[in-house]
Design a protein around this nucleic acid. Structure first.
Length: 492
RNA sequence: GGGCCCUUCGCCAAGUGGUAAGGCAACGGUUUGCAAAACCGUUAUUCCCCGGUUCGAAUCCGGGAGGGCCCUCCA
């Protein structure tokens, strides 16, 4: 299966060929843990989690690393503000980040290295860069010498001289050139610090990612990802220092996800318009958030609104109604259907399936796989998912399976549903069974009683009474559905 | 001043040279005692505008308009 990836470095879609056959190393820049995560922070993890799901399914062995930046200027400021310490704030915010990832079904990250656990690696990298003439100490700091890197700016297609025209770069008499950036920052009194050959200090922002990426994934790695806003200066600088250090390529494919917006502006901590994930999770299903993040292409900006999230919730209900229907007629839980872990061309070839439901579902699944293989087009994939749902529902209606439950129709339905689940899992959707909110024994008993009373009324054609019961329940946000197999109820 | 990118139905959104997926909303129909759900159908002769290339363009090229991101911390 030919997979293509858009590479920021070349500004083209390229065939995906890993550096080592069968193996993929992927590094995604994680958060600076000074404030709780907002939805925008989840875009990258969800996208790259999906990338890993798909690549693993396609047969690659993927190692996925996301760093935690637990030392940084903002963190120091935040700790002072909270009358706390950097490690305590970092630990608390990291825990929040982990909770968010878990809620959104991000399970593919193998390792979360912390910057402060890699000071020796960082120091040795800086020393080597100095020895090679790419960096210079200056008054307790160490700076990367941009002029020493012939192709500096290649990731973002930037000319260092043109950038100076913007004149927004911090001017410092410690630097040789305004574009030089800190590898090591000397500590001011009271700041957390580590000893170094240049005096006590802490790592600069970019060097940790280089050091950790090299340590845990080697070089070159296959995929280096992050938000579009990280392209410059973060990734450009990472690239410059890493390749200057290595003398060869650092990353094969650079991938950048689009940013989340609220009210036409970028969502960010500094804009103050961020929507904190932990709060959002109290009002919306995590699956809806994940679906929203995957519904458009990962390189496009996403306009965030709770109205959209509610719309997505309605959309997702359609799937979950089918899952309940499926359980009623097959006696099997959709969520426990066993799905194959890997792609096998023969198993999934529609041409090899007998005509009918299963072949149709296979054809649609093939479209989903192709979408994902084409630069991880999750929006196209979700479209295919919907068409599968419609086809499955139509089959149930046409075969009147809900009434007769004949085995000859049940078998293809189960096979089709299993394939739908396999596809959903690639996107990290339909992972968890929807649990009825207040399924207490009392509620169930009362509902059973009311449904029986209403059934009696209907039998004796006392529709006024039947409708009164249903109307009363509707007012309590409970919907009754008279299905062929009996009346069911649902709380909205 | 420089770099990157976007503009497809009321809203969201796929499609990157072969004649417009999908979702939400809306409206018809089937079904139902009536509903609900589901299914079927309708809703862009057209893809911001103007030129060009081509047998053929939403897709490629040129120009214009509008919008976003980056060049400062940011996922």
């Amino acid at each position: 299966m030919a997979i293509s990836v858009y590479n920021t470095l070349t500004r083209r879609k390229e065939p995906f060929v890993p550096v080592h056959p069968g193996r993929v190393g992927m590094y995604v820049c994680g958060p600076t843990v000074y404030k709780p995560s907002h939805v925008g922070h989840m875009v990258g993890p969800v996208i790259f989690d999906t990338v890993k799901r798909f690549l693993s399914w396609a047969g690659y062995q993927v190692k996925f690393v996301v760093n935690i930046t637990d030392i940084d200027d903002k963190l120091i400021v935040e700790a002072v503000k909270q009358n706390s310490t950097v490690p305590i704030v970092a630990e608390r915010v990291t825990a929040d980040y982990m909770d968010c990832l878990k809620a959104l079904g991000v399970r593919g990250i193998d390792l979360f290295p912390k910057a402060t656990d890699h000071i020796p690696e960082i120091l040795s990298m800086i020393e080597s860069l100095i020895a090679k003439g790419h960096a210079y100490p200056s008054a307790g700091d160490v700076y990367f010498d941009v002029a020493s890197d012939g192709d500096y700016g290649k990731l973002c297609n930037r000319d260092p001289e043109q950038m100076e025209a913007g004149a927004r770069i911090e001017i410092s008499d410690r630097k040789k050139n305004p574009g030089d950036f800190a590898l090591w920052k000397g500590a001011k009194p009271g700041e957390p610090s580590w000893p170094s050959p240049w005096g006590p200090g802490r790592p600069g922002w970019h060097i940790e990612c280089s050091a950790m990426s090299l340590k845990w994934l080697g070089a070159p790695i296959d995929i280096h990802g992050g938000g579009l806003d990280l392209q410059f200066p973060h990734h450009e600088n990472e690239l410059a220092q890493s390749e200057s250090y290595l003398g060869h390529a650092f990353t094969k494919y650079w991938m950048h996800n689009g940013l989340m917006k609220t009210g036409d502006k970028k969502m960010s901590k500094s804009e103050g318009n961020e929507v904190v994930v932990s709060l959002l999770l109290k009002r919306h299903k995590s699956e809806a958030i994940r679906y929203l993040l995957l519904s458009s292409h990962y390189r496009s900006p996403i306009e965030f609104s709770e109205a959209r999230l509610e719309e997505v919730g309605r959309t997702l209900e359609g799937f979950h109604r089918f899952f309940e229907l499926f359980a009623r007629i097959s006696g099997k839980s959709f969520f426990y259907l066993e799905t194959p872990k890997h792609r096998e061309a023969k198993r999934l070839d529609p041409a090899l399936a007998p005509e009918g439901l299963l072949r149709d579902i296979m054809t649609l699944s093939a479209r989903l796989f192709e979408s994902l293989a084409d630069d991880f087009n999750t929006g196209g994939a979700i479209g295919a998912l919907h068409e599968m749902l419609t086809r499955l529902n139509r089959f149930v209606a046409e075969t009147r399976l809900e009434e007769n439950r004949d085995q000859a129709s049940l078998d293809p339905l189960i096979a089709g549903a299993t394939l739908l689940r396999e596809c959903g899992l690639l996107l990290g959707l339909f992972e968890e069974e929807t649990v009825k909110e207040s399924g207490t024994g009392l509620t169930d008993g009362l509902m059973k009683l009311l449904i029986e009373l209403r059934a009696e009324s209907r039998k004796t054609k006392n529709f006024a009474m039947a409708d009164q019961i249903r109307k009363g329940l509707t007012d309590l946000n409970i919907t009754l559905e008279d299905r062929p197999g009996g009346t069911i109820w649902r709380q909205s």
